[in-house]
Amino acid sequence: MRVPSRGAMQLEYFQLIDRILDLNLDEKTITVEAQVPKQSTIFEGHFPGYPIMPGVLLIESMAQTSGWLLLALFKFERMPFLAAVKEAKMRGFVPPGELLTIEANLVHEGSGYAITDAKIKVGGKLRCNSTITFSHVPFPNPDLRGHMDAVAKRIGFPQQALQS
């Protein structure tokens, strides 16, 4: 089994979040940070001679950020899965080495589904944004729950947030 490592994003393993900077369950907001690696096999194909982060991975990073907010709101009893991506906008290129600040807030919590707004900023400027829908279900098996616990540890999930 692969042990999650601390530090920069690992695009090939869908490790797209480095650390949680802020989680506010009253406001239902989250802010995370992710350093795009300088080198990755992803950049060998996207694109040769002009490496930029693929839009799908930027969308995935917004989905993962939203997912951690939802996991916290569900107190790790339910797992959110990506269901729909709306109005996803890639407003500028994200080259290797950039530091992403990714924010998400809860727009609506329905029965078995939730909607978030998410955005990626670089140097304080908006680079991407989207509205994202998730369906959520009780954790389908202990393995997935164990994996999410391990990732929570790696990215510094503030366990004390669940006590309040």
């Binding site: 269901a83 729909a84 329905g110 029965s111 078995g112 909607i115």
Partner: peptide, 22 residues
């Protein structure tokens, strides 16, 4: 999936939470 969009719009319009899971 389309029904999720409808549920969201109904939840918002009527200020309720359709108990879809139930």
């Amino acid at each position: 999936l389309d029904f999720l969009d409808i549920a969201f719009a109904i939840d918002k319009a009527f200020g309720i939470k359709l108990p879809l899971e139930k």
